[in-house]
Design a binder for these strands. Structure first.
Length: 1157
RNA sequence: GGGCUCAUAGCUCAGUUGGCAGAGCGCGUCGCUGAUAACGACGAGGUCCUAGGUUCAAGUCCUAGUGGGCCCA
């Protein structure tokens, strides 16, 4: 049985699909798991993928990493868990389900019922988990797909309950009232983690407004705001006591204005106007901002009447801009419900009665809150509408007036504004009109800035007074200690420093969200006595339940089911769960405990935690998953003698971008779906791209062409037109993928094809007795030695979790194998079977071993290509061999085969060959032209040995008749010298330059000889004599007309340029051979076909060459006969050699083709 | 506004204790080809962001500035 024939052009996607079928039919993955069961463990912890949409190619980078490491550690004999995770709960699912069910508000959701909504969310998660699993399988991602974890599972949720219980017991869980960024569309507040996701450049109508100072006739504070709706809730005005303020008299109405002196002529956003905001330009249609000088000048002119310190303004009172609103009259402030106002504030003066100037001082870093610059140096302060304002308000006893409801609209108490959306243009216009009526508007402008928006709905965020639940971060130092025990990779990402940054600056963790689909926060709160309790798990809740347990018992711990359970408060009340759901990063952060049976099988947890590795895309995760898993694990371990980190190594990687390094967007059709790339580029190609990419650098993947729909033809006759999710497949192009396929996959394929083509002809038997390595040629022993070195390198790189070096080591070996070993040894495979020599068998065995090992080495990265090759080379021919490459043991280096001297000599040979080729090119002597001689002056014993050992390779490769080693070619040289600044510098200091210039004037040849004898050189500069060490002088050489020279340091290669008549004829013969070979190929002849050849020309030299070198031509072209008359053959070609025309014809002989040497 | 970080060929990036500015890709010319759409040689392409400073010598160290990225306000 011989090897299967290998096609020239592999259809990689088709090949991958057939390997998938093989794996599935034969249960290869299950066999692998069985093989490793009970062996040393390699533990991986999966960061859950959001099960909300199909996978794109940007997900495939991380998943390729995960699979490649699993496959490596499995081949290296480790037992793995293979558990994939799906992230299931959170606003992103709600938003998609709302779209699906055509719901637009929270009221809509409540109308259809929370149970219906929750079930729809679960269904969506299951649907996309299945889609992603299918896509992942196509990627070759070997996971235990029946054992994926879901963050919505009971296990996961109840483990978070136990975590929250622990937070409560340690006193870190609390309810706080704060002003939070809020989305009216989503109806919930955002944590600081989420705000960063949704920042957008927009232009807002900003207003300069004046506040009338009480008890001073026609005098005003000038304030500025980008959020006009907050003026309704103004309570105070903040100044910086250390700033200088001007008193400006406007001529138009004789009014006196106070504002910071620096602001009069400050050019606001001048830099942004010229250069834009980062990568974004200044918005079109937004005019340049005016200075206050301009504004007052355009309004009739002004005079400066004096200056005053900010501290003098403090304590002044003024009339607010909306004092007519009922909300401004309410003692203690205004909010709905009034519960939001803490009891100790209920006696404070109303907004209207409390308007006054304060100095809020400095923040925790010692920076003043109020500075001159963008505004007026007087900050309008509304403690119910801003988080900083709220902080000042509490300190200065200024009440909070909270104007907005959950929908982002004005609540009752705001007169004509009630019911209107705060951020609508019309509402802003109405506020402006009101201010104009009251004579308070000084100027309005369009002001561009980067402002937070809802990261899912795109809704502009407002700030709203709410109560939310928090975990205090007073224990952040414990988390830091945990983070420091983890190995953050790659080191240049400085992951630990970035995590430390976040842990240092992050505020308390807001864990509640006023939504529906998510972790039910296990907090039961008593509205009568104000206490709250945390349930640590399902059992505890059952014991405490006094109502509703029966309704809940068979349900998952989600809304609305769990909301029905009441417990008894210490005060006797029957109390309910708070309606909030949890932050989704709680769901992902607990998985080091929830997925490893922490609460049910502690022994199992002990065995698998800490995980050896986690790996995710870097951007964002420092404040998300990395943070959550470290924080939650730290809490779970709090108080233990030896706190256990959740994982040992963390590997991050950058982003997948399009080929022009732009972010791909789903919305404009440029995001590449996984299937599109897989079926057009091939999964192995993609995997190699991901693995070879430096993890710190964004990967420019390719381009999707949304206008070009395509259909993929499958080998079984079927077609693929849509993704698993039903999207139409479109054309994807990728230059990086094309390069990888060409340079790596095709190169492997062609080595494999070369081997199979000849092995089939010769019926090579891989199980035949091995030719002892000692008896093989040096070049065989060299490639085998190189193979052991690459095995060691690749293993080391995998163990260090560095995939790029894995790929690069394999690529380098492949280059050596393909472009040197095979290239140099082709003739050993060509020659006739009848000779049946051990040397030929040695070549086969050497190449076979190289290919098989290479295939095993690359298997974790390109599992499909590897298995295809392995199965043809090994599984189908070697009895007892594993049926899949993935069931093999990973190769280990055989020390006895490593010969470093040989490697050094081969490197030296390659260097000399390369130098000689350069000399040929420079002398315009093409390789087909034989030359008489090459002289080599070796720079070392290694180079000398290389020339002697590989003499035949030099003769053949360079097409020369003889090679001579010559220790001293200096007699053939013309010599020039120059100083080596690296050594002259330290030796001569300031004079180094002068000495170097003086060297130009000395006798070069004499000096060079002196140096060769190891003697120093004397240089006279302006009457002073300097002694120059020989090493500090660089000698360079050139050669005469008969020789083409090339040199590197002490290595010299000289080619004899003199071409005799015989050499010339030989060169012409080789030209003829080459043209015949081309013609053979064009005529689609088989390698073994013999031909009758006709060569006709008028040129004497060519005729002579054809006659003299007749045997050579016949042997090389498998010509049985050479004639000089026309054959009337189909295969004919008219070519020019040396400018002379030659007619070539050939026909295939009918007799069976015995190959000749 | 603050912190960190980066700036080198058309693109992506190396550049070690300071010592002759590099690689890959792309481009051009030539060569090689009986596995290879492969490969080899050569070439064009540089204000090493700017300005000062230290030094015999700065892409490299120091200072200031400009611009980008990330994080935090």
């Amino acid at each position: 049985m011989s090897f299967d024939k290998v096609v020239a052009r592999a259809d990689f996607p088709a090949l991958e699909r057939s390997i998938l079928k093989f794996w599935s039919d034969e249960g290869i993955f299950e066999k692998l798991r069985a093989k490793n069961r009970g062996r040393k463990k390699w533990s991986f912890l999966d960061g859950p993928i959001t099960a909300n949409n199909p996978m794109g190619v940007h997900h495939a980078w991380g998943r390729t990493y995960k699979d490649a490491f699993h496959r490596y550690f499995a081949m290296a004999g480790h037992d793995c868990r293979y558990q994939n995770g799906f992230d299931c709960q959170g606003l992103w699912v709600e938003i998609e389900v709302e779209k699906q069910l055509n719901l637009s508000t929270k009221a809509d959701i409540e109308r259809i019922g929370l149970d219906t909504f929750t079930e729809a969310c679960k269904q969506r998660v299951h649907k996309y988990a299945a889609v992603q699993a299918e896509q992942s399988k196509r990627l070759g991602y070997w996971m235990d797909w029946d054992d994926s974890y879901f963050t919505m599972s009971d296990d996961n949720n109840y483990t978070i309950w136990s975590f929250l219980k622990k937070c409560h017991e340690t006193g870190f869980l609390y309810k706080g009232t704060d002003v939070m960024p809020w989305s009216g569309r989503a109806g919930c507040a955002y944590s600081h983690m989420e705000i960063a996701e949704g920042r957008k450049l927009v232009a807002h109508t900003a207003l300069f407004v004046r506040f009338a100072i009480r008890d001073r006739e026609n005098e005003f504070l000038l304030v500025w705001t980008t959020t006009p709706w907050t003026l309704t809730s103004n309570v105070g005005a903040a100044v910086n006591g250390d700033l200088t303020y001007v008193k400006l008299r406007a001529k138009r109405d004789n009014a006196l204005y106070y504002f910071a002196k620096d602001n009069l002529n400050h050019k606001r956003l001048d830099k942004e106007f010229k250069q834009g905001f980062g990568s974004q330009p200044w918005p079109k249609n937004v005019p340049k901002l005016k200075t206050l000088h301009q504004i007052f000048n355009e309004h009739g002119g002004y005079e400066i009447e004096g200056e005053v310190r900010g501290s003098e303004l403090v304590g002044w009172t003024y009339d607010g801009p909306f004092d007519e609103l009922p909300a401004q009259q309410q003692q203690g402030g205004f909010a709905a419900p009034m519960d939001l106002i803490p009891a100790d504030q209920r006696g404070w003066a109303s907004g209207r009665d409390g308007h006054r100037v304060i100095d809020p001082g400095k923040d925790s870093r010692g920076e003043s809150y109020v500075v001159a610059g963008e505004g007026t140096g007087i900050v309008h302060s509304a403690p119910g509408c801003g988080d900083v304002d709220n902080k000042w308000g509490k300190k200065h006893e200024m009440v909070a007036i909270a104007p907005l409801g959950a929908d982002g609209k004005f609540i009752e108490g705001f007169g004509p504004l009630t019911g209107k959306r705060a951020t609508d243009k019309e509402t802003v216009q109405e506020i402006i009109a009101s201010l104009k009526d009251k004579g308070l508007l000084v100027a309005a402008e369009e002001y561009p800035h980067i402002y937070p928006h809802c990261w899912r709905t795109g809704d502009e965020l407002v700030f709203r007074l709410v109560d939310e639940w928090y975990i205090s971060m007073d224990w952040r130092d414990d988390i830091k200690k945990m983070a420091q025990r983890v190995n953050w990779m790659p080191a240049s990402m400085r992951g630990m420093e970035r995590e430390m940054d976040w842990l240092t600056t992050m505020k308390d963790w807001m864990i509640s969200k006023k939504r529906y689909w998510g972790l039910a926060l296990p907090i039961w709160e008593c509205h009568k006595c104000g206490t709250f309790e945390v349930m640590g798990g399902r059992d505890e809740l059952r014991e405490r339940a006094v109502e509703g347990w029966a309704e809940f018992e068979n349900q998952t711990p989600h809304r609305p089911y769990v909301d029905r359970v009441k417990i008894k408060c210490v005060c006797g009340e029957h109390i309910s769960r708070i309606p909030d759901v949890g932050n989704p990063w709680l769901d992902a952060g607990i998985v080091a405990y929830s997925t490893t049976r922490y609460n049910t099988d502690r022994e199992y947890w002990n065995e698998w935690v800490p995980a050896d590795l986690i790996t995710e895309c870097f951007p964002g995760q420092f404040r998300n998953w990395f943070y959550a898993i470290l924080a939650m694990s730290t809490m779970m371990e709090l108080g233990k003698e030896k706190p256990r980190p959740p994982f040992k190594n963390l590997l991050g990687h950058a982003l997948v971008l399009d080929e022009n390094r732009q972010v791909m967007h789903k919305s404009d059709g440029t995001a590449i779906w996984f299937e599109e790339a897989a079926e057009q580029l091939g999964v192995d190609t993609m995997r190699w791209m991901y693995c070879a990419q430096p993890p710190t650098v964004d990967l420019p993947f390719g381009l999707r062409h949304p206008d070009e729909e395509i259909t993929v033809q499958c080998a079984d006759g079927g077609t693929i037109t849509h993704t698993v999710d039903g999207d139409r497949l479109c054309r994807v192009t990728s230059k990086p993928a094309d390069e990888v396929r060409r340079r790596v996959l095709m190169s492997i394929w062609n080595c494999y094809k070369f081997f199979c083509d000849y092995a089939r002809i010769d019926n090579f038997d891989p199980t035949a007795e091995q030719v002892p390595v000692a008896d093989r040629q040096d070049i065989d022993r060299w490639i085998l030695s190189d193979l052991q070195l690459v095995v060691a390198d690749v293993r080391g790189a995998f163990e260090r979790y560095e995939l790029a070096p894995v790929c690069h080591a394999i690529e380098e070996f492949l280059d050596n194998l393909s472009n040197w070993y095979i290239r140099r040894n082709r003739r050993r495979f060509w020659r006739g079977q009848s000779e049946g020599d051990a040397d030929k068998l040695a070549a086969y065995q050497t190449l076979y071993q190289s290919l098989v090992t290479l295939t095993q080495l690359a298997a974790p990265v390109v599992p499909f290509l590897s298995d295809t090759i392995y199965r043809n080379l090994v599984a189908n021919h070697v009895e007892g061999a594993p049926e899949s490459v993935h069931l093999c043991d990973y190769p280990e280096p055989d020390e006895t085969l490593i010969d470093r001297d040989l490697s050094d000599r081969m490197a030296a040979l390659l260097k000399i060959i390369s130098m000689a080729r350069a000399a040929r090119t420079n002398a315009k002597l093409k390789v087909r032209q034989p030359l008489a001689m090459i002289r080599v002056q070796p720079a070392s014993d290694t180079e000398r040995a290389a020339v002697e050992l590989f003499k035949d390779h030099i003769l053949e490769e360079l097409n020369v008749k003889d090679v001579v080693v010559d220790d001293d070619l200096s007699s053939m040289c013309m010599v020039a010298i120059e100083g080596n600044m690296k050594l002259l510098g330290p030796a001569f200091g300031k004079n180094a330059g002068t000495v170097a210039r003086a060297l130009a004037d000395v006798n070069a040849k004499a000096t060079a000889e002196q140096i060769a004898r190891g003697l120093s050189v004397e240089v006279k500069v302006g009457g002073e004599t300097h002694i120059v060490e020989p090493a500090a002088i660089i000698v360079s050489k050139s050669y005469g007309d008969d020789w083409a020279g090339e040199e590197q340091v002490n290595t010299v290669v000289l080619l004899d340029k003199r071409i005799t008549h015989e050499l010339k004829l030989e060169g012409l013969a080789r030209d003829i051979v080459r043209h015949v070979q081309t013609l053979r190929k064009e005529a689609n002849l088989d390698l073994e076909d013999r031909i009758t050849l006709s060569v006709r020309t008028d040129d004497d030299d060519l005729n002579e060459a054809a006659r003299v070198c007749r045997d050579h031509i016949a042997r090389e072209t498998l010509a049985a006969d050479i004639v000089h008359s026309s054959l009337e053959a189909a295969a004919t070609s008219s070519v020019k050699i040396d400018g002379k025309t030659v007619e070539i014809e050939l026909v295939r002989c009918q007799d069976d083709g015995l190959r000749t040497m």
